Simulated assay, not measured.
Amino acid sequence: MELAESRRVNQKIKQLQQEEKKSLWKRTVNYRLAFVYLLPSLIIFSVFLFYPMIRTLYLSFFLTDAQGNSSLFVGFENYLYLLQSVMFQKSISATLLFVLYTVPIGIGIAFILALLANEKVKGIGFFRTVFSSTLGMSVAASAVIWLFLFHPTVGMLNTLLEFIGVSAVPWLLDPTWALISVAITTIWMNTGFSFLILLGGLQNIDQNLYESARIDGATYFYKLKRITIPMLSPTLFFIFTITFIHSFQSFGQVDILTGGGPAHSTNLIVYSIYQDAFINYQFGTASAQAVMLFSVVFILTFLQFHFGEKKVHYQ
């Protein structure tokens, strides 16, 4: 009798366990389905993002051979070498100055163009196309165009300056002007993307707000300050973040226009990483620079989100 009762209890326990497993399987079906859909992206990110990041961090603690294989563990000596290197300090200074040139000026120009293109006047579609045209051009093509414009003798910019009685400017030959020249090229390249995003944000603002302000007698600049900028703040915050990160990653225009010169005045940190890795074959110090660049961008972006996002109006 007791044996039969024990068997029934065990049977009941097994049945409950099976039902619990089936219930758990049903509850997690959405998670498993989501994982299946995400699996291709996870594989791609692992191959092209996560593994290179881990590999870069690993190599930053080693001296490497010409093939990029680790040969001698040196710990933090690569980082200490960079912090004491005058060349690296110049690279950091040039990069920060370059970001200061390109980000606020580029966003300001794109914002003004977006305000103009948002006006409902005849033929405005043509100007919208012109303002956004740089979006479809590659970095190489854009840099080559500006390379001819900056030419010291036959360039159009110096020709125009001489026409109005101003002496020619050594755009790419003078250390002071070279960084400004690369910044001008970068601003021109990024204007199309920023313009389109800002124009889309302007067109999503509720027009009833402007109508109410117009009835109350508000001026254009009052509406700009009290309606346009607050309602556009999420878009401005997004553009500022993206442009900020892209400025730290600038490479193509530097390589084509100046090659890091003259006198290393345009040797931005990404170009410095390229030189150390693929010209000098010092993959250890190049990896250390990449890690430091990632850390700086991460910290500055975190601070931007922590302090800047508080002024963003999402409603």
Rank of each mutant, 00 (worst) to 15 (best):
F193M: 07
F127A: 09
G136D: 03
V166T: 11
N190L: 00
S71M: 11
Q84G: 11
F131D: 05
G108V: 14
E77W: 01
L57C: 07
I197G: 00
L59F: 01
F111A: 10
S167G: 12
L161S: 11
F126T: 12
S71W: 00
S181L: 06
D65N: 06
Q89V: 07
Q67I: 00
F148C: 01
S181R: 08
S91L: 13
T185M: 06
S194H: 02
L63M: 08
E162C: 01
L115C: 07
N69P: 00
F195Y: 06
T95H: 10
A143R: 05
V139F: 15
V130L: 14
L59G: 03
P104K: 06
F131E: 03
F62T: 01
K90F: 05
T159Y: 14
A140C: 07
A141Q: 03
F193E: 02
P170L: 07
E77L: 04
M156S: 14
F148L: 10
I124E: 02
A94I: 05
N190R: 03
L196E: 01
L97C: 12
F62W: 12
Y79Q: 08
G125N: 14
A183F: 00
F148G: 02
G125E: 08
I92L: 15
M137K: 04
L96S: 05
L63T: 12
M87E: 15
H151W: 09
F163Q: 15
Y101A: 09
I197D: 00
M87Y: 11
F150E: 09
V166H: 13
I105A: 13
F73C: 02
M189F: 05
F148W: 14
E77N: 10
V154C: 04
W171G: 08
L149E: 09
I92A: 11
S194M: 06
T64I: 01
S85R: 05
V139T: 14
Y79F: 15
I197V: 13
Y79D: 05
R128W: 06
S167H: 11
W188A: 01
T159N: 15
K120H: 12
T129C: 06
K120V: 09
G68Y: 01
A94K: 05
A168G: 13
L82R: 08
I107V: 15
L80M: 10
F73E: 04
L115A: 06
E77R: 12
G75K: 02
T134K: 03
H151R: 12
L100Y: 06
S71N: 02
P152L: 08
V74T: 05
A168S: 15
I124N: 08
N158G: 12
S132E: 03
L59M: 09
F126S: 09
H151T: 05
L80T: 10
E162W: 02
A94Y: 07
S93R: 13
L72S: 04
T185S: 11
V86A: 13
L160S: 13
A94V: 06
I180V: 14
T64Y: 02
L72C: 00
A66I: 04
N190P: 00
A178W: 08
T134P: 07
